[in-house]
Nucleic acid binder design. Sequence first.
DNA 1: GCGACAG
DNA 2: ATCTTGTCGC
Length: 236
Amino acid sequence: MNGPSGVGRALSLRHPWSLSPAEAAALQRALRRRLSLRPMRHPPRTIAGADISVPRFGRRAVAAVVVLSFPDLEVVEESLVAGELRFPYIPGFLSFREGPLLEEALLGLARKPGLVLFDGQGIAHPRGLGIASHLGLRLGLRAAGCAKSRLWGEETEPPRARGGWTPLWAPGGEVVGAALRTRAGVKPVYVSPGHGIDLEGAIAWTLAAAPRFRVPEPIRAAHARANEERRRLGIH
DNA sequence: GCGACAG
DNA sequence: ATCTTGTCGC
């Protein structure tokens, strides 16, 4: 995927990944202003899920991106890449840990996905640039964050039914995401726009991509493929 | 100093 | 995130 229609052609806003936490924070504050949170005009034809699998201790990992057709949710393409994680896990800096490898996997796709769902936050982040926003902006991809737990903001209990949601309020009073119930009665997922999409869209497509389980199919598929590949390569 | 804290 | 078997329930 470096052709005219590939992600490689849209590369921009590149910066070195090896930064100190202080430099990374400054970069996040600068990049957040470049995000586009305008609504998508058409439904995506494909939705990709991106995730990484890493052993308890150790830095070798496998990144996986699985592209599904939409609304059918059938696998149409996948990209796997094994590599090393060089940044520690620090809340608020996940993209500096997983970003490099996920970017490689995304660049390995033959076709640009209509939307990418990340296992993490979009703008629901202390400096407004979670991993979905960072990689979406960097690679020129529409992206949204769908995390299993909250990093930033607060919400009230969302309605019990599938599709029920309540806004995630940042300290300053802005709505930065939503606590969305993808299955009746189960713990909600935290959805927030990443780049090239608004909150309403992020909620709608995430819900549509999760017809059966709490976690959206694209992310589940990426999680499963990353784990399988890591095992196959004997990384533990 | 204390609590919070994506994966 | 990852470590891990069975088990309760629709």
